[in-house]
Design a binder for these strands. Structure first.
Lengths: 244, 244
DNA sequence: ACAAAAGTGTTTATTGTACACCCATGC
DNA sequence: GCATGGGTGTACAATAAACACTTTTGT
């Protein structure tokens, strides 16, 4: 859209409509993904207001006049987890007038990918938010169109994780090949062959194999790897395409 | 986001902020694509207001309180082309507070795919809109963040056209294999092998070969094809994945 | 020494890519 | 009969998929 002060000439209606009593609100909702073990999880909270008390909901916040959508989304994640500069992607904007019965709210959905460990202290105390495995979400009572938001976010993640190296955002700096594979299996929703997966990933030359090995989980210990961001930038600039 | 009347309890600020004098506006902008010959085109108009008089701009419209984003986008396309029920996809929402200097406007970008022929009568008269080849857009002066909108829309189209049969929206009911290939070449931005392309497309069994042949363009005449929507629905339901 | 997970190669099937000639028709 | 774009098949390369045994090491 163009210039609001002049738009009525151009579009055939005045921009002043919005000053009416039933205003239009903008908000963001965040599908916050975290991964551990063998399954991707999403952070939800119990909705505290009638008539949906106790149902699950995404966390969100209104968009203030001088704050961008991206910032509003970051702030929502930070308020909840204490983490700054989390990897986020915009998913979709939901603007049906009756999606929330009480108000006209236009909500832009984002997903966030974060490493779960550092968030654990803050989470439980302040907002009563809970990590739930993504496979459980379809069985839950979830408010408004949040099920659709979750679905779109997961679909977008599923696509993007295959052509951009964003999966690493969900893992610690050091991770094992098994952890990486479990992550992809959970996001894509199907098993991946152990040998073929590791071949494909390593062939891209984006992972540094560290000397250090994982302790505790097995006698032998699995090698840790590190995603080499600089290397990826170099290769990408030269036309390399990430693909899983 | 959730319930506006109660949200201040929950998010730590009042929902009433929006009643301030500098209100927040919502709009949609449409990247309208049309195809003929060998190149994809986009419909732009000359921006009539200072300080961008004469620059190119996408067509858009404000989002009225009781109209959804999808409807607002449809209406914009209809106002401009006279066409109803055009294929549209939401692309991205732009919400930087200073993206339009004069107002805070949150704009959701859509792309539309339409068959050019039926729009030609209405176009020129009412809005002075012009079809421009997509390869020209980077050389034009385009207002605000509309270049970015165009770019995102084209990227999304490029991706989607490969895994969903949406390209047919840009063609007439009957089209030749050459037209279809030219379309894909223009969208993807690279040449496609004639034989390999037709093999790949026909193997999916989504096209009906018609008896009728194209006249005028060649002595022999190329066969017309028709995209079989029902067939696609059946196959898709059975797990078939479209892919180019 | 043994249990438990880590690590590693080869074979086959599938898909993609490159490429050139004959065909049908209107003039 | 000839000029013009339409239509078709094959050989090779690259990628994906299936599959099982040996290695390491803590107990």
């Amino acid at each position: 859209m163009t210039n609001a002060t002049t738009a009525h000439n151009h579009n055939g209606f005045s921009a002043g409509y919005h000053a009416g009593e039933k205003s239009l609100l903008n908000s963001v909702d965040c599908v916050i993904f975290g991964f551990w073990g063998k399954e991707l999880h999403v952070l939800l909270h119990r909705f505290p207001y009638e008539p949906y008390v106790g149902d699950w909901a995404l966390l969100g916040g209104f968009v203030l006049p001088n704050v961008s959508l991206d910032e509003a989304a970051q702030q929502t994640v930070e308020r909840l987890t204490g983490l700054e500069n989390v990897y986020m992607e915009q998913v979709y904007t939901f603007g049906n007038p009756f999606r929330v019965p009480t108000d006209r709210i236009i909500t832009t959905c984002y997903y966030a990918l974060l490493e779960v460990e550092p968030t654990l202290p803050k989470l439980s105390t302040q907002y009563g938010a809970t990590w739930l495995p993504i496979s459980e979400v379809p069985n839950l009572d979830v408010v408004y169109d949040h099920p659709l938001m979750f679905q779109k976010a997961l679909e977008q993640l599923r696509r993007k994780v295959r052509y951009q190296p964003i999966g690493f955002e969900l893992l610690a700096e050091k991770f094992t090949m098994l952890e990486l594979r479990n992550l992809y299996e959970s996001i894509l929703g199907r098993p991946l062959d152990k040998r073929n997966f590791s071949k494909k990933i390593l062939k891209m030359n984006l992972l540094q194999k560290l000397k250090e090995k994982q302790k505790g989980t097995s006698r032998r210990g699995a090698h840790f790897f590190r995603f080499d961001e600089n290397r990826y930038q170099e290769l990408a600039a030269a036309g390399f395409l990430f693909e899983v």
